[in-house]
Amino acid sequence: MLTAAARPDSLAQLTSLRFCAALLVLLSHLVFLERSGSPVLRGLYDLFFRQGACGVTFFFILSGFILTHAYERALKEGRVSALTYYHRRVARIFPLHLMVGLAFLAYLAWRADLPPMPAVLLNLALLHSWSPDPLVHYSLNGPSWSLSDELFFYALFPWLVKWREPVLRAVFIAGMVLIVAGSCFTALRVAGYSPWVDWIFYVFPLTRLFEFIAGILLCRAWRSCIGRRWATSATEALAVISLPATMVAVEWFAVPLAFRYQLIFLPPMAVLILIFAHGQGALSHLLRQPGLQSLGEASFALYLIHRPMITFMERWSGAGAASDIALAIAMLPMAMLASILGFALLDRPVQHWLRRRKTFTVKRKAFAIRQ
């Protein structure tokens, strides 16, 4: 039997799922709905939209999965150097981050609403998630804190993939046990929202590292065809349905915040990625359609662009339920259009230019997806 990595399958369906995850994060940032005069809109935001932050868990797991798929063997066999790997990772996330961040900074300067300059500098350098101060780690373009975490994951990856499977699995289990214990202790001591708890369990790179490690282990499981026999159209549908069901359940049953940040959503996200990585069901076939692929390729731009757009547009919120609904509905096509243009006119040309600056020895795989 051919292993998963040897078959001429495509992981394109995971590219389309990236758009869905970015869309969830966008929904979580429609915070003007929480302030709406309509109890229905406030209830909808609290029950479902707020939990869209779980899209970050998807991105962290998928990042470990795809980097393992694309680089593990190349790094171990010396077909790509660590320097080349780091060059590609930095070139992947910094250009668009800096372009969006500086453009938004100019807008904030025009509004005379600039964040503290040390916070801005840490943000632009992608070091801000290490600060427990929310005015720092959520400074400028809020979602960029996750890129700060990703940069840390990228730095560790060449060492993590050299660890033997039992060692890496033991590290993952030990880390998750500590996080579960910490979440239980926090839930007993802290009743509501706390900036410190938010930082430790949602933003802090060391805490979120274990989702990235889960992605590494998941890729190795996929290569070994684990879960392939269950990757059917029915299980794909169940994997998709389980996510919104979990999102509603955590609010319905008042799950403590410390568990919502990643623990509750890690299992369904991991199952979702593994099932769709095998790509055997009807939904996988649908997700490989060119239109959805284009949206998936633009998902990084959507992730970075949407929050500044909401900040710009929410000045028109609060004029009534109809106004809030219209604004929320308008945000989706506007953010999608902006992300597609940002990807086509900024992100992709810059990526191509940066990749031409250096000769890479790693060969492209026909079924590798864009990172």
Rank of each mutant, 00 (worst) to 15 (best):
L30Q: 15
V167I: 12
M331E: 07
G37L: 05
L2S: 14
W145N: 00
I61W: 05
S284W: 05
L62Y: 02
L346E: 12
A258S: 15
L122C: 07
G175W: 01
L292G: 01
S317L: 02
V177H: 08
W163S: 13
Q280K: 11
Q262G: 09
F312R: 07
L67S: 10
P308A: 11
L124P: 03
P308T: 09
H137M: 04
R73W: 03
G227I: 02
S323T: 15
R164H: 10
P244M: 06
I241D: 08
G64I: 01
L345E: 13
G281F: 01
S183N: 00
R229S: 15
E297I: 10
L14Q: 02
G192K: 09
I93N: 12
A21D: 02
F104S: 03
S28T: 03
R364G: 09
P132D: 00
A82L: 14
F300S: 08
A119S: 14
E34T: 09
Y261H: 14
Y303T: 05
R315I: 11
W159H: 09
V161S: 02
L24W: 14
M336F: 05
A103T: 12
L168F: 06
G215R: 04
D198F: 13
V171Q: 03
I340K: 10
D198Y: 13
F60T: 08
A282F: 11
F153E: 10
W252D: 06
C225D: 09
Q371L: 15
G227W: 02
E236R: 04
L302N: 05
S148D: 04
R348I: 11
L67Y: 11
I325V: 14
R364N: 14
G43S: 08
A277H: 00
L17S: 02
D46Y: 07
A237R: 13
I179C: 09
P158M: 03
L26T: 01
A366P: 13
F210S: 10
L33G: 05
M334K: 10
A21M: 07
S242W: 14
E72K: 15
A335D: 04
F259A: 03
A74Q: 15
W163G: 10
S16V: 11
Y193R: 05
L127Y: 01
A338K: 03
T359P: 08
E77G: 12
L126N: 04
P290S: 08
L257T: 08
D133W: 03
L178D: 09
A301E: 01
L337N: 02
V40T: 14
L217K: 02
E314I: 09
I226K: 04
A214E: 14
L122G: 03
I264E: 11
Q289K: 13
R315M: 08
V203Q: 13
E314K: 14
